[in-house]
Design a protein around this nucleic acid. Structure first.
Lengths: 325, 325
DNA sequence: GGCCTTATACTTACTTTGAGCATAAATGAG
DNA sequence: CTCATTTATGCTCAAAGTAAGTATAAGGCC
């Protein structure tokens, strides 16, 4: 059995979260893959003889494919369900894939790659447009998702199943009494997948272009699912581990830090409270330098205070993410 | 390549957390396995042809081996490092194992099994005696762990490595300025493993019996590592998901609930604040019945309020776990 | 200088938390 | 029967933390 290792490598260019993608060499799969199904995460098979650990295997593949030496790496989940990959054939081989989240600092602002084998950064909200609430609720939610999901609910066989679907949808999307939870990225993606509202699940490829536009760009195999897992995990982890500093430059202004958290979390933070929080938690310390590239009053430059991990059990950016409907 | 699925099945008998273990049929491995290395978690290889999903594979194996139909199941981690299993041979096959956490309600208080193939419940603190702080700091920490770890720190080649080891130990065990973090179960186990302080890592088997007594009982393969992962995850999850109710009877008194959380978390809670918390979070609702088996004033019986998952984003028992040195 | 922008300090009302006191309702010993 | 003991449960109080502002500072640009 083949175990595939795949990495969701996340970085930040200004206020846009980026994800490293590459166009696998053509010819191996079907030639004329439909629109959008050409990009994927860096990945490769685990080699028990060559790789001392799973993580080392992943690092090796990423290095070979992208020239990137990863720093922060974290295992996410192991996917083994049948037919995750829409192109899987009945009786065909079944890949099991182990997904990883990696965080990197430098994000050359190259656009998604043109040439086969070339790695390039893509905006992760291109693949999950409904997850970006920084400017209020994405209109597509009410315009596209809600009706689509509603149709799927009504489509259920019996009443109990309808009820079950409705509950799941309400929980994941916060449609009923509940609120939008920015961590439930995977729940939402899986619902959209089941409801046939994402490209990967649209078996009728004539409708695919339509779904493509409406529900974000697709990725090959189950890579969008892995990306959803990575997003959810990262959004959760920001709150109780100082992972945000893995994507920040060594020194930064507090607004830059805030924008970084907002970009990954997909919501807005209260500025004054945010700075009180990071100062009070001891997450950062002033460097003494100032940056005058702010457009207004110059801002003090801060750096991450590493000692914080020894002082408190779960240091992170606890600031509540605000999403406005 | 073989993917092994293994389940840490956790239940509760009164105030003792229990883990389901079985004695694999003899004769397959070496016959005269050393003391303590005979019990292991329910497990079996993933079969891509027969199992629709990894989780289904796991459920099937558990059902076959223990007659247990699992309810709550959660994937933990996929382990693929070389030589996790102390009996692995150079050039031999390398198993990759996917660990799961399962929670069950009924815990027949059978002791760890006598007969091959028979499943039985064992106290999980038998395998991690240093993790139970309910009656204050376990004496073995200062008596055995601290000196052993110190020796390992001094054993490092150069100064930088010594420093690194010291930091890791202080972080995981809260020896320096830091405090004991009840979630870092895996960190601690891995340090003890690296330092040769657990049976599994003791290559010289003459010292093994000694290590056995000092540092808890061992399990076959890397099952103790999987158990450590399960403990850490469960202790974390109790705080933000209502998983505790997966191990509770349908109705319970608040003290029973508190004791359950304490048993799994390994520390004590403040009684009055605990009840205020669970009531205020809307986690439970009164049934109207009372239980007079308390030994004092009869206590009201409560049940889990399922609606809570729709009301708040992360409902769980947020009560701070107190550990006293 | 006046006006734009962003940075940063401080206020205020409100909520949550940690700790403990006080009372209620059972049991069992004498 | 009374009282000591045990567990349950209600309540207070101070300290800390939080959400949402107002106010002021310090740059650039016209």
């Amino acid at each position: 059995m083949v175990i595939e290792l795949a990495a969701a490598i996340v970085g930040l260019a200004d206020e846009a979260p980026k994800i490293l993608l590459l166009r696998p060499a053509e010819g191996k799969g079907e030639a004329g893959q439909p629109l959008g199904l050409r990009l994927g995460l860096p990945c490769g098979p685990f080699d028990p003889a060559g790789h001392r650990t799973l993580e080392e295997g992943l690092r090796t593949w990423v290095r070979e494919q992208t020239d990137l030496h990863l720093g922060y790496v974290e295992q996410l989940y192991t996917f083994g369900d049948r037919f995750r990959d829409p192109t899987e054939r009945v009786g065909g081989p079944r890949p099991v894939s182990v997904g990883y989240l990696a965080l990197v600092r430098q994000t050359a602002a190259k656009n998604a790659g043109r040439n086969p084998g070339e790695a390039a950064w893509g905006d992760w909200y291109r693949y999950f447009p409904w997850e970006d609430w920084r400017d209020g609720a994405p209109p597509m939610l009410d315009a596209v998702m809600a009706p689509g999901l509603d149709h799927w609910i009504q489509d259920a066989g019996d009443k109990a199943e309808r009820q079950r679907r409705r509950e799941r949808v309400n929980l994941a999307f916060g449609f009923g009494a509940g609120a939008w939870d920015n961590e439930r990225v995977l729940d939402r993606y899986e619902l959209l997948y089941e409801a046939g509202l994402v490209f990967e699940a649209a078996f009728d490829r004539s409708q695919a272009a339509d779904a493509q536009i409406k529900s974000g760009a697709a990725l090959i195999k189950d890579h969008r699912r892995i990306l959803a897992t990575a997003m959810g995990r990262l959004r959760a982890k920001i709150k109780y581990r100082p992972v945000i500093f893995e994507v920040m430059a060594p020194t930064f202004t507090l607004l830059q830090l805030q924008r970084a958290v907002e970009a990954l979390s997909g919501g807005r933070l209260h500025k004054q409270n945010f700075r009180r929080l990071v100062a009070h938690e001891g997450l950062v310390e002033p460097t003494g330098q100032v940056s005058s590239a702010t457009g207004g009053r110059p801002a003090e430059l801060f750096r991450f205070r590493r000692e914080v991990v020894h002082e408190r059990p779960a240091p992170g950016v606890r600031a509540p993410v605000k999403v406005r409907r």
